[in-house]
Design a protein around this nucleic acid. Structure first.
Ligand code: ATP
Length: 981
DNA sequence: TCCAGCATCATTTTT
DNA sequence: TGATGCTGGA
């Protein structure tokens, strides 16, 4: 390291060491979620360039998604400036390969105008070939989707079609007697289809997603000159790379052997796609000089969120224990909110989001919330609920927009211009708009083309030119307009017309709008999608002009600034990008994000909500790898900075009647474990109160200014006026206990009191706050409990299991009334003992030969000074998981009650452990802030309008997301037909 | 060739 | 519940 720059100042000791590790080496940075891996990677790139004077063009940075690449590019631009950043070889493995393959296509025998074949086209090709094996198929139940994914996995492992087939055959031989005519094994069929599929792709001059990598390896390992530029390669999310990607990395780093990877085995969630965590070990074997650095301080989440997350992932028996801790306060306990009914679950989410925004008095915006789903289809009810509450949302990830029928139609025309051999495109558009060409005619054409060894399009052009005889029922008349259109467009494209203008021309030529109007009931929306595609095309054109401008100054041999037609560039980007890749638009910051757990990887939000945490979803019922599912939930939970909610419905509706559904075992297990150990539950079962002190903590963790009290009041008033009530929550109870009676026997003092003793779990007869929840003290978790405050004495018999438990006798006697303001370090400083700083365990989690870097400095001053009190006095360092003696603190707030009540506005008292609620507390002693008289008679309409007005989702959003009124996941609704064709 | 209507099935994750 | 696939008639 030659000098320290400001961007290095933002790193802690270990991070700094990782970022400035000597460039001529191989380095693994292994660390848990939120430990700053991405930040380190970014800083390291800047360091390599600014301090080690490695030219940016000599650096290859690989990210997992385009979105991640864009974000990194943005951050680096601030440090390095546009010109430097533009020279970096940065992107996903796929996009990098695609760019290099364009440049060096000839070296690997690929025509430079190859088309990237998307997944659905791949599947169609596979399906066609599968049909050949129909007879055998019945026995084996092989579906196109399955076969496609097998082929994809084979490619990810660099197993060629011939190799696969040979393997399958030799295995079959092994099993069956030789020479007999035994039916082919499923493996052999897959192998045969694989061979045919490959042949088809080559014939069509197409590469599928996996081919980009396979051919990339071929290119880089066979032609060293193509990677001569590389002086350092950095790979993010390394735990989710597959064999082919590993080989790519090695090939690119071939001569220099300078590699930096970052990853976290606990976050490997793409095993289903043939990702290999093993690559970590493999790299150590291949590069024995590899140094490992571990980051163990989490900067993202509160202690409570981190603890619950670690508890989840620790259930994996094969996992190597690791240390991860945070200096943040414990904060508010994660919430497990269970309701009866999926609609109710969705509406709970919507209402709670609204409540939080109101109670935080503007410190939270819609953009601070993320709803993370196991699969896209779950978004439906939630979107509806959000819409009903007037909450704007956006759906992130996926390829939905480009899967729309109308978008695919247009793209197919363009693909055909660029690559006339690409049959899938021809098949899609030859009868769009309807030209009376059906299956029969088409089959005929294909067959003739096959015989003539020509592409079908070439054949059609031959017929058009009357160089080739027409068919019996003339096709020439039918294809007349089609060929004319294609030729016209081709001419335009050749003369340099950009994609957006080409699309416009195309729309005119084939009267596409008319076609939509005639064939689609929702043609208007679809037409808007087409317009949106034009906008997208324009953006791509402009972007590439900018890129070229930035690169023009520094022309070098290795530049990826290759001459690629704008059309080709546009098509490539369309195939490789997904929604929200480069959306830094302001408007999207103001929307609740809905996305899958998978696409949430690497991202973070102040508030994360994970719906459907039930037994059929986590682990997903059809998944093969339970541990991976658990990790997925872990990844999802660790996206949260300050608040985490898990929700689920106790029932689901299946074909009319309702069936009950259990809680996810990942959660059930740890809840039971905690109950047995008599520790504070990791999840609370009611909504947290956000009075003054909790707000302060949230703001501190998020490094935001605290909201103005008057504003809080105003927003809460407005919310209250809407009268939105949360659907009643069903408390979690240990097994063997009747739900409703749970708390008459089971006494977690901090638990939500039983709803009633009647046994009817749905009738909540508790004093309700305006928020529809009983007023309950939020138990503090912030103060590191000093072991001495924990006095395990009282024996407690668990009625369901007849097991004895020792229960901490915290607040005697039970039933208890507790008055504890939630988790404020600041308020407790006077009372709480200085928290013991527990050094993290420094067992090497990964390998004994590992270089271990000294324990992290636990404290870093916040970048935005939030409060005068230094973080140090607030921080707790503690070992990551378990082992913490928990006890509800018996600390009584130091402030007089009235003061607290005034300041927070919420009632802080009353957690009652009685079979029946005490009538005397039916009315909360201190009501929630009501529309106070001082504010009374405001232009109510206005205020309410501000919060309630459901800004009707505008078309643009829907379009971008590829949704109509209905949504992602599956195009429901008669109006929205799937883009099938 | 196209479309309406009926039967069936079953809810994954993505570059 | 809602989407997808198949069939038979125009
Ligand atoms: N030294 C630091 N000081 C303050 N904040 C930090 C520091 N390092 C990282 N952070 C913050 O912590 C958060 C997580 O960082 P980052 O996304 O880089 O972590 P990560 O290890 O990549 O996480 P994940 O594995 O979950 O993707 C970010 O908000 C980042 O700004």
């Amino acid at each position: 390291m030659e000098r320290t720059d400001s961007f290095l100042d933002a790193l802690n000791g270990v991070q700094l060491r990782a970022a400035t590790h000597p460039p001529n080496s191989t380095l693994q940075i292994l660390a848990g979620p939120g430990s700053g891996k991405t930040r380190v990677l970014t800083s390291r790139i800047a360091h390599l360039i600014l301090n080690c004077h490695i030219p940016p063009a000599a650096i290859c940075a690989v990210t997992f998604t385009n979105k991640a690449a864009n974000e990194m590019r943005e951050r680096l631009t601030k440090l390095l400036g546009k010109t430097q950043v533009a020279q970096l070889k940065m992107g996903t493995f796929h996009s990098l390969c695609a760019r290099f393959l364009r440049k060096y296509s000839k070296l690997v025998d690929v025509p430079e105008n190859f088309t990237v074949c998307d997944a659905s086209e791949s599947k169609k090709i596979v399906a066609t070939h599968l049909k050949t094996f129909e007879k055998d198929l019945k026995a084996h139940n092989l579906e196109p989707g399955t076969v496609t994914s097998i082929i994809s996995k084979a490619k990810a492992k660099r197993l060629s079609a011939d190799g696969y087939l040979d393997d399958a055959k030799s295995k079959a031989h092994y099993r069956g007697p030789t020479g007999t005519e035994s039916p082919p094994t499923p493996d052999i069929i897959v192998g045969e289809v694989y061979v045919l599929y490959e042949a088809t792709l080559r014939q069509n001059n197409a590469l599928d997603f996996d081919d980009l990598l396979v051919f990339g390896v071929k290119l880089f390992s066979g032609h060293h000159l193509t990677v001569g530029w590389c002086r350092h390669i950095l790979v993010d999310e390394f735990q989710d790379t597959n064999v082919t990607q590993y080989d790519l990395m090695r090939a690119i780093a071939n001569s220099v052997r300078c590699i930096t990877i970052v990853g976290d085995p606990d976050q490997s969630i793409y095993g289903w796609r043939a990702a290999e965590v093993e690559n970590l070990a493999k790299m150590k074997r291949d590069f024995p000089e590899t140094v490992q650095i571990f980051l163990e301080e989490n900067y993202r989440s509160t202690g409570a969120i981190l603890e619950a997350s670690l508890e989840i992932v620790s259930q994996d028996s094969k996992r190597i224990a690791k240390s991860l801790y945070t200096a943040h306060p414990d904060g508010i306990a994660p919430v497990l909110y269970q309701v009866n009914g999926e609609q109710e679950e969705a509406s709970f989410i919507a209402i709670e989001v609204k409540r939080l925004v109101a109670q935080m008095g503007g410190a939270f915006k819609w953009g601070d919330f993320a709803i993370l789903l196991r699969f896209n289809a779950l978004s439906r009810t939630i979107e509806n609920a959000l819409q009903k509450e007037g909450i704007p949302c956006r759906i992130l990830g996926g390829h939905k927009f480009f899967e729309r029928l109308e978008v695919k139609d247009v793209l197919a025309y363009l693909q055909l211009l660029d690559n006339p051999a690409f049959v899938p495109a021809l098949l899609r558009v030859i009868n769009v708009p309807g030209r009376g060409i059906g299956e029969k005619t088409l089959a005929d054409i294909l067959q003739r083309a096959e015989k003539a060894q020509k592409s079908p399009l070439a054949l059609l052009e031959g017929i058009f030119d009357m160089r080739v005889p027409d068919n019996k029922p003339s096709i020439r008349k039918k294809i007349l307009s089609f060929i004319q259109a294609i030729r016209k467009l081709r001419k335009s494209a050749e003369s340099g017309t950009g994609p957006s203008d080409l699309i416009n021309e195309l729309l005119d030529l084939v009267e596409y709008q008319d076609h939509l109007r005639k064939t689609q009931p929702d043609w208007e929306t679809r037409w808007e999608n087409v317009r949106e595609l034009i906008t997208f095309a324009k953006e791509v054109e402009e972007q590439s002009v900018r890129d070229n401008a930035a690169l023009a100054l520094n022309e070098d041999e290795s530049s990826l600034n290759i001459e690629m037609s704008a059309l080709r560039q546009f098509l490539q980007v369309s195939m490789l990008s997904s929604t929200g890749d480069n959306e830094s638009e302001e408007s999207n910051q103001e929307k609740v994000t809905i996305t899958t757990c998978h696409s949430a990887k690497g991202l973070e939000w102040p508030v994360v909500i994970i719906p459907s945490v039930d037994a059929t979803t986590y682990p997903f019922i059809r998944s093969e790898d339970e541990d991976e599912e658990r990790r997925l939930l872990y990844v999802a939970c660790t996206r949260a900075k300050s608040l985490l909610y898990l929700t689920r419905s106790t029932t689901r509706r299946v074909a009319g009647d309702t069936k009950s559904r259990a809680l996810s075992k990942f959660i059930q297990t740890i809840m039971e474990k905690r109950a047995k150990e008599n520790k504070i539950p990791l999840f609370i079962d009611h909504i947290p109160h956000l009075e003054l002190e909790n707000r302060a903590i949230l703001c501190k963790v998020l490094e935001r200014p605290e909201p103005d009290e008057a504003e809080v009041q105003r927003m809460v008033d407005a919310f209250t006026r809407q009268g939105r009530e949360h659907p009643p929550g069903i408390p979690w109870t240990p097994p063997g206990q009747a739900q409703a009676n749970a708390y008459s026997n089971w006494s977690y003092p901090q638990s939500f009191p039983s709803s009633s003793s009647t046994g009817d779990s749905t009738s909540v007869s508790y004093p309700m706050t305006s928020f529809g929840r009983p007023a309950i003290a939020q138990f503090g978790r912030a103060v590191a409990p000093s072991p001495s405050s924990f006095t395990p004495t009282a024996e407690f018999r668990h009625p369901g299991q007849g097991v004895s438990f020792s229960r901490p006798s915290l607040v005697q006697p039970l039933p208890t009334v507790t008055t504890v303001p939630a988790l404020s370090h600041t308020s407790h400083l006077a009372l709480a003992k200085p928290a013991p700083i527990v050094a993290p365990l420094f067992k090497s989690p990964f390998s004994s030969t590992t270089l271990r870097v000294s324990p992290p400095r636990p404290i870093k001053p916040p970048q935005v000074p939030a409060r005068p009190s230094p973080t140090s006095s607030l921080s707790i360092a503690r070992p990551a998981s378990g082992s913490r003696h928990t006890s509800t603190q018996s600390i009584i707030p130091s402030k007089p009650r009235s003061q607290i009540l005034q300041s927070g506005g919420n009632r802080l008292t009353a957690a009652i452990q009685q079979p029946r609620p005490n009538p005397s507390i039916k009315e909360p002693p201190v009501p929630l802030p009501k529309p106070s008289s001082s504010h009374s008679a405001p232009p109510a309409a206005k205020t309410t309008a501000e919060v309630t007005t459901p800004p009707p989702q505008n078309g643009s959003l829907k379009r971008r997301l590829g949704m109509g009124p209905r949504t992602a996941g599956g195009y429901s609704n008669k109006k929205f037909k799937p883009p099938t064709k």
